[in-house]
Design a binder for these strands. Structure first.
Lengths: 265, 265
DNA sequence: CCCGTATATTACCCGTGGGTAAAAAATAGT
DNA sequence: ACTATTTTTTACCCACGGGTAATATACGGG
């Protein structure tokens, strides 16, 4: 009778526990995915927890097994987006090149983030809907992001790849343009998120790049991350960014595991 | 004009108990001024009509003599901002010059609007809080504004003042940058709204202009050194914007009179 | 088979705030 | 001064939705 199906339980006593914890995390994430989509779709105040639950085929109180309340769900959505931004910055900072080159890399990654749900949550959600503590965390993180843009610009000014300019205002101009993507972009349009991102990287740095001598500016200034030397008419050659996707995915997974997990009561 | 008395409160037609004999329209406008400030300060959902009324030294039901409901107040706030934008576009369109020149003018005016309450209401308020009808009106108006940017860019491309580019995306980039001003600018900072506006007009067109704006660009590029000690150069003096203020004020008054006024029950 | 734990459901509470009816106060006209 | 109209207040309703307590169900281990 010892057909021994499902050996997992007999072999490792703590594996079931692990699998259960994993299942729990997966449910938690499912809640967040649903919530972020609904919040973006109907607005935080327009969306109800009943509707979130309904889309998950559960009922509202079940959500409270994973989150303390609505505002915590909002915060967690934002938190995931923030981790993705952190990854962008980390990857960019780790790269070598001029300040301008780093700036362009950050713009591409950040812009593409703004075309995704969790990225949008960074700019579409209202700080005032968060608890006092979480609001402070978000504000600090926002300053950090702004600082990254500013630092790259300043770095570019020093190494000569960027024209002398007010780094603060230039960063506001660039970041504002990018953040606004999160307000108008919706998948299914004529351009993919990546296409928008790369176009913006060029457009937003054309004005401050020193090498902006007419047409040569583009090609010379964007050698590494740019494959647009071919007419930007076709969206082919999605190959060179494979490594980036790998890195992105890995960092994201790591981020998730390291993020504060749902209260294990 | 000078209603100088009782410095304790701001400008409320209801101030003390008597002397409540002002025109209906003025009261209506006072409500909107208070409401737009509160909505921006606490968010539409965070702000209550009770608080709006309290700041005006009246009670909530009194508001319903001038507006049908909260969402109509929101719409009227937006509507005033929209009229101001319309004025910007009209003035710009009436001016002569290259497409680039018009674009810059529009940017300056639009940017400065974004530093004011009614301008901010254009980009900080959520369409979904409006009634179905009003939402459609707003959406149409938004497209019109976007179209103005796009048209000037296209015009500039044709007359050679602007480099060939995707007008749609360029407009998104510029308008996004400007709209974001409405999210971060608050009076009392180190820069005035006008200063920000002029800086942005240069920065945002540097990338797409065919003629590099030498001197203006240079001036803008070295703000840190002499930004503080630089009063308006030449004889323009601090009142060089008088004409525009005149135009603005006149147009605004006209707009108010032509805007649908409070339901005359 | 039973028990303990985690998870989910039913049923409910209740604070909030938009909105309203009716009375009161102010205002204007004659 | 009296009346008609507008404006404002007092007092109230109630829908909505976040949140909770009590209960039921699923499940793994002994």
């Amino acid at each position: 009778m010892d057909d021994g199906h499902i050996p997992s339980s007999s072999q490792s006593p703590w594996l079931p526990f692990e699998s259960r914890r994993r299942a729990r995390d997966e449910k938690r994430e499912a809640v967040l995915r649903t919530a972020v989509a609904l919040f973006l779709e109907q607005g935080y105040h327009g969306a109800t927890l009943n509707e979130v639950a309904r889309r998950l085929n559960i009922t509202k109180p079940a959500l409270y097994n994973y989150f303390r309340g609505k505002d915590e769900i909002l915060y967690e959505c934002w938190s995931i987006g923030n981790e993705l931004v952190d990854d962008c910055i980390a990857e960019t900072s780790a790269s070598t090149g001029s300040g301008l080159s780093k700036l362009r890399k950050l713009i591409v990654r950040y812009a593409e983030l703004m075309t995704e749900d969790y990225g949008k949550s960074l700019v579409r959600f209202d700080l005032r809907d968060l608890s006092e503590d979480n609001r402070k965390i978000v504000q600090t993180a926002k300053r950090r992001i702004d600082g990254a843009f500013r630092d790259y610009i300043a770095e570019g000014v020093e190494d000569g790849s960027v024209k002398p300019c007010d780094a603060k205002l230039a960063a506001f101009a660039i970041a504002g343009s990018l953040n606004w993507i999160g307000h108008w972009f919706q998948p299914g349009g004529e351009m993919t998120g990546r296409a928008v991102a790369e176009e913006f990287a060029i457009r937003l740095t054309e004005g401050i790049a020193t090498t902006a001598t007419r047409k040569t500016a583009r090609k010379a200034a964007v050698p590494a991350a740019e494959k647009a030397d071919k007419p930007p008419r076709n969206g082919n050659a999605p190959r060179e960014d494979e490594s980036e996707h790998h890195t992105r995915a890995a960092a994201r997974a790591a981020g998730q595991s390291k993020r504060a997990r749902g209260r294990l009561r």
